[in-house]
Amino acid sequence: MKKLIPVLGTLLFIAIIAIIFISLAKKEQPVTIVKGNTAFKPLPIKLNATNDTQCKMLIKSERNAVEVIAPDGRTWFFDDPGCMTLWIQDKPWKDRAKIWVHTLDTKRWIDARKAWYGVKDATAMHYGFGAREHKCPDCIDFHEMQLRMLRGENLTNPKIRKKLLGV
């Protein structure tokens, strides 16, 4: 009996490890990229099951979400226009990419290059660049939003935050 206990313990340990691996293998992994979007249209985002390509956070809302579609149809997802800007800056095809953003005002997907961006909005990563279909006071265009993001002139910068929000 004393020789059987270590063998049973080892078998039990192996069984537990096997169950863990099998359960992990069956668990659906978060979406990070979708291939074959040759229609170049925004795809439905599986909320709480799709990762932002830049910051790796789960996308919890379409509010200010962005989708970038490469010329070959690969689609990446972002929870904040700032994340998209940081990620796309070194892509050789960035000027040929189709970029969609979900707007605050009309709650629709529009061409991100035609959107207007607030500078002090609540966004997923707190950069402050909320997208709009219609121009608003203090809104900036896509090019200016990208420049400010790349220069660090967003709400994550304490000096900019104080200047824009007074806090």
Rank of each mutant, 00 (worst) to 15 (best):
Y117E: 03
K120W: 07
V101D: 13
R113M: 11
T123G: 03
T123A: 07
L104T: 03
L104Q: 04
D111C: 11
Q89V: 06
D90K: 13
W109H: 05
P92L: 02
Q89M: 07
D90Q: 04
R113C: 09
T103A: 12
K94L: 09
V119C: 07
D121N: 09
K120F: 09
Y117P: 03
K98W: 05
P92A: 08
D121A: 12
D111K: 06
D105A: 10
Q89H: 08
W93A: 03
L104W: 12
A122R: 15
R108G: 02
A112G: 04
I99G: 05
A97H: 06
A124S: 11
D95C: 00
A112R: 12
P92F: 09
K107I: 03
A115H: 05
M125C: 13
D111H: 09
A112W: 02
R96E: 15
I88M: 08
L104A: 05
H102E: 14
Y117I: 00
A122K: 07
D90R: 06
W93I: 01
I110H: 01
M125I: 03
I88L: 07
T106Q: 15
L104R: 14
V101F: 08
I99M: 05
Y117Q: 10
Q89D: 14
G118E: 06
K107H: 05
R113F: 02
Y117T: 09
W109R: 00
W109A: 02
I88V: 04
P92I: 07
V119P: 00
D90I: 03
D121Q: 10
V119K: 11
R108S: 08
A112Q: 10
A112P: 08
D105S: 06
K107D: 12
D95V: 04
A124Y: 03
V101P: 02
Y117F: 12
W93G: 02
A115Q: 00
